[in-house]
Amino acid sequence: MAIDLKGLSAQELKRLATDIKKQQTALNKRKPIAGVRKKVIALAKAEGYTIAELFGGKSAKAAPAKKAAKKGAKKATKKVAPKYRNPANPKETWSGRGKQPLWLAAQVKKGKKVEEFLIKK
């Protein structure tokens, strides 16, 4: 973050200097990160967890779910009732989800409308 100090007035510079001192004081009051990290790890371990389980990352328990997601595993979806039927072959149906089936795409290409193939209930 670059601040163009040349474009600031004396009052703006003074406010900026005050804000800088406040931020430095707040940062100096914080405990060293290594000490805090040790405490968090110890607390997690005492409760039977690993840091990876709590915050993500590699761990024996968390790895299988992440591996499956990386490999492009599809999550289970409900089967959807068909909305369209091929009049030439009534066994061929389409739910309206995903890519249009070839039989329907061919009919649309011939000038027919998708609505003509709706299954009437």
Results as ranks from 00 to 15, higher is better:
Met1Tyr: 14
Ile3Thr: 14
Ile3Leu: 13
Leu5Met: 15
Lys6His: 07
Gly7Tyr: 07
Leu8Cys: 09
Ala10Val: 10
Ala10Met: 04
Ala10Ile: 07
Gln11Arg: 14
Glu12Leu: 03
Glu12Tyr: 02
Leu13Met: 12
Lys14Ser: 11
Lys14Met: 09
Lys14Ile: 12
Arg15Ile: 07
Ala17Phe: 07
Ala17Cys: 08
Thr18Val: 09
Asp19Gln: 08
Asp19His: 04
Lys22His: 09
Gln23Ala: 12
Gln23His: 07
Thr25Glu: 14
Thr25Gly: 03
Ala26Gln: 06
Asn28Glu: 15
Lys29Glu: 15
Arg30Val: 11
Arg30Cys: 10
Pro32Asp: 13
Ala34Ile: 10
Ala34Asp: 14
Lys38Val: 15
Lys39Glu: 15
Val40Pro: 01
Lys45Arg: 14
Lys45Glu: 15
Glu47Ser: 08
Glu47Tyr: 09
Tyr49Asp: 04
Ile51Gly: 00
Ile51Asn: 00
Glu53Pro: 00
Gly56Asp: 05
Lys58Phe: 13
Ala60Glu: 12
Lys61Asp: 07
Ala62Arg: 05
Pro64Trp: 10
Lys66Gly: 08
Lys66His: 09
Ala68Asn: 05
Ala69Ile: 11
Lys70Thr: 07
Lys71Leu: 14
Lys71Phe: 07
Gly72Arg: 03
Lys78Asp: 12
Lys78Leu: 12
Lys78Phe: 03
Lys79Asp: 10
Val80Arg: 01
Ala81Pro: 03
Pro82Tyr: 10
Lys83Met: 11
Tyr84Ser: 01
Asn86Lys: 02
Lys91Gly: 05
Lys91Pro: 00
Glu92Tyr: 06
Thr93His: 01
Ser95His: 03
Ser95Gly: 04
Arg97Thr: 15
Arg97Pro: 00
Arg97Cys: 03
Arg97Met: 13
Gln100Tyr: 06
Gln100Met: 11
Gln100Asn: 13
Gln100Pro: 02
Pro101Asn: 06
Leu102Gln: 13
Leu104Ala: 02
Ala105Pro: 00
Val108Lys: 02
Val108His: 02
Val108Leu: 14
Gly111Asp: 04
Lys112Glu: 09
Lys112Asp: 08
Lys113His: 10
Lys113Val: 13
Glu115Met: 07
Phe117Ala: 02
Leu118Phe: 14
Ile119Ser: 05
